[in-house]
Design a protein around this nucleic acid. Structure first.
Lengths: 246, 246
DNA sequence: CGTATCTTTGACGCAGTTCAAGGAAGGTGG
DNA sequence: CCACCTTCCTTGAACTGCGTCAAAGATACG
């Protein structure tokens, strides 16, 4: 399991390095993080809405999602978390979250104490800044999702999601943008795009005619540019420029 | 104009104090911030999507909105900013934003240099943490908007927005939650709730029967609890608990 | 090999869009 | 203070994307 730990933390560090310059000491500090490993089966909740948490969850493998729960039990997913994502990094400065966290597929996570993360941020201010940056990227992605839900029709909404996941999988070195695993059901994708399972299914059929297939939890895209066109996808919101230390 | 400056910064400090404990030195440091004052007329863009910015905008009066621009020119608003809000606090760690900022009504803002804010955050780590917290609250609100757009019908979406704005106006001491100014047109509210002007108008008519009126840029709510019920509104996402300094 | 979960399809209804046009409010210049 | 013009609000009628309900296949799993 130790190997798994290191692998996950390595992915997290790589994610930070996408947007922040960190020196060797800072990298080492991240790599020295320790946590408790847990395996969650598909469809289980990791964090219940409103729960007070004292750890952050680093995804080691699988796929997790943050969600908002409605009165009638319906759920709206507002973020996907893939391996290397530190979800609930938000809860380092604010310990009670309004949202919940669920495992979409079987998912192994590393629970890392807030105290440790806070200690790191305090000891290495530039590292703290990179954490802040990470939560801001998360916000930027959400702001795109707001636009997606508010102003696009269902094929375009799905197309946009598939573009985003493709980019993120490629950046994390977990697949190619035109061919990657997406460990979710159509129902879960429907929860993320604000539609019903039935309509998700029909819209996927439409996209299939554009060379986009989602079969057996794998996405394959014949013509990337065409999908980008359908989705009106502009990756700038993923904030992939490096920011120098201040 | 100096009086206006102080008033705005005072509001910003109050906003921080809602969630963070700051000592006297830290409060004074915030109050000593200086900026360039500007007045933007209604419908003008303050920041264009993709623009590189070196200042944050503190709203002094009026109402501003962050938006995502679609290919066809349509806009989706993903956040409202009222007086005391420091928009683009995000751009302190990341200077290029994918979103834009527009003035909904005539709005006066205070442009504050990133360098100054960064200096503050570096000098007073606890203050830096309160800035981080502020951007996290912004994210929490957006995550609610995602749920709102994805899973609620139009009267409920509007109701939720009116509840949120009521709470925020009251917290900023700019009105009562059941009676407050909302300096936006129906078209702008439609941009925020992902619908057309026509449907916004019709849905407002439905809400009027529930004692909710939006006339001449003022919201009045006869029965707050009923509106909360319609909206399925739970204010926990506004994160109003105080967080002790670390 | 059996059972639960997930996908796919059909028929029908409705919430919300589109197009079009009239009316009210508000701001500006004479 | 009125005349004018622009922006905003309001309503009607027709259309459509998506939801709902229902049921039959396909897939995965123990």
């Amino acid at each position: 399991m130790e190997a798994n730990h290191h692998e996950a933390i390595r992915l997290f560090l790589n994610r930070l390095l996408l947007r922040s310059e960190l020196d060797e000491r800072e990298c080492d500090a991240v790599l020295s993080l320790r946590g408790r490993s847990e395996v969650i089966e598909a469809h289980r909740d990791i964090v219940v809405p409103g729960q007070k948490v004292t750890t952050s969850c680093l995804i080691a493998s699988g796929l997790a999602a943050r969600f908002d729960q409605m009165r009638d039990g319906g759920r709206q997913i507002d973020a996907f978390h893939l391996p290397g994502d530190m979800c609930d990094l938000h809860s380092v400065p604010i310990s009670t979250s309004a949202w919940g966290l669920q495992a979409l597929s079987a998912t192994s996570i590393l629970m890392i104490a807030h105290a440790d993360l806070r200690h790191l941020a305090a000891t290495y201010p530039n590292l703290g800044l990179s954490f802040w940056r990470d939560t801001i990227v998360d916000g930027s992605v959400m702001s795109k999702w707001v636009g997606n839900l508010g102003r696009r029709d269902s094929p375009a909404r799905i197309a946009h999601l598939l573009c985003e996941m493709g980019m993120r999988m490629e950046l994390a070195d977990l697949g190619k943008r035109t061919d990657y695993p997406l460990l979710a059901t159509q129902g879960q994708l429907a929860d993320a795009t604000g539609m019903t399972v039935v309509h998700m299914n029909r819209s996927l059929k439409v996209l299939r005619e554009a060379g986009v297939s989602f079969v057996r939890k794998r996405v394959t895209i014949a013509d990337w540019n065409q999908l980008v066109e359908i989705a009106d996808f502009d990756p700038r919101y993923l904030m992939l420029e490096k920011n120098a230390p201040k």
